Simulated assay, not measured.
Amino acid sequence: MGSAARIEAFLEMMSAERGASENTLQSYRRDLEDAASSIQGPLAQASATQLRGYLAELAGRGFAASSQARRLSALRQFFKFLHGEGVRNDDPTGVLDMPRKDRTLPQTLTEDDAARLLDRAEAEIAEAVTDEERFAALRMHALIEVLYATGLRVSELVMLPVSVARRDERFFFVTGKGNKERLVPLSAKARGAMKAWLAARAANPAQAGSRFLFPAASDSGHLPRQVFARDLKGLAARAGLDAASLSPHVLRHAFASHLLQNGADLRAVQQLLGHADISTTQIYTHVLEKRLIALVNDHHPLAD
């Protein structure tokens, strides 16, 4: 069996047994195919020396340590699968060190900038001249209110079922990575924005029958995340913000950072974001550090 067939078998396992999303599967495919094209001979038979050389090649090609680490993670999963299937009796990735990552802080928004963005989205509903403009403004307002209120991944957001808006409840379940469900609270303002969008959506015959809250005439049947990201940049520019640095992921980071700044527990934020491992959430410890320093400075009797 050649490299391509081994990779396909691995991806089938990740889909069937691990519930990996299509985006995750595509990422694994790209990483493994890149490694297979770089290593002489079949990827399944690669040695630790060859794999180490491949990682060094990635560094030479200008890949950041985080990108190298992601490639190594894909290779580890792949060779673990081969070992489990009896294709190999060893795992060559076991002796490879994870590339050292620089501590990078997630790009985020200040609370004031987030408020400006939300206010601009709401104002554009009233300012709309045509029905088409109002329809688009209602959708964008609902999208960013829900995103900022929940911290959903953009793929989770655009794939929300319409039932979320119809129930008008303060909580809903969302299916995240690995088909894992988590409970997500929804603010009154986000529920209101969804209700207004739902009314406009119901009046549109092309969208009223869709099972998605944010339908679109796309292959998937829902609003593509790239379209939302593009429209979000346009809204940011109209709000006087730096459009180039704003993305749905930045709003997700803002959700987490603002919760922590206002007293939320790191473990609770982990659960809300759908992080399987607390170590993933620990990129936000800089927010906690600032809060704790302020707490001591404000309340310790010797702080002055």
Rank of each mutant, 00 (worst) to 15 (best):
F79N: 02
L147E: 08
E133A: 13
Q107H: 14
E156P: 11
E156K: 13
N179F: 11
L105T: 08
E127K: 14
A59D: 14
A199F: 00
R167Y: 01
E181C: 09
A136K: 11
T110H: 07
V129E: 15
R182V: 09
A196G: 01
L143T: 04
S163N: 09
L147H: 06
T108C: 03
V164I: 11
S73M: 09
A137R: 10
E145D: 02
K101A: 15
T175R: 15
F173Q: 12
A142H: 00
K101H: 11
E156H: 12
L117N: 06
L118S: 05
R100H: 10
A65H: 10
A165F: 04
A137T: 02
R182T: 07
R116N: 07
S67G: 04
R100S: 11
T108H: 05
E156A: 00
E133H: 14
R166I: 03
A74V: 05
A165G: 02
A115D: 13
L160T: 00
H83S: 11
V158A: 05
A136P: 02
R120M: 13
P92C: 04
F81A: 04
F171D: 10
L152R: 11
E111L: 13
A136G: 08
G178S: 10
P185E: 12
F172L: 05
S66F: 12
G62N: 11
M98D: 11
L109H: 02
G151Y: 03
L183E: 15
R201T: 00
A114H: 10
K189A: 14
L96M: 13
A74N: 04
V154M: 06
R116Q: 11
N89Q: 15
F171Q: 13
F79K: 00
E85F: 04
M159D: 14
N179P: 06
L109N: 05
V184C: 14
R103M: 06
A149C: 10
R88L: 03
D119N: 14
Q68L: 14
A128K: 07
A196L: 01
A114T: 14
T104I: 14
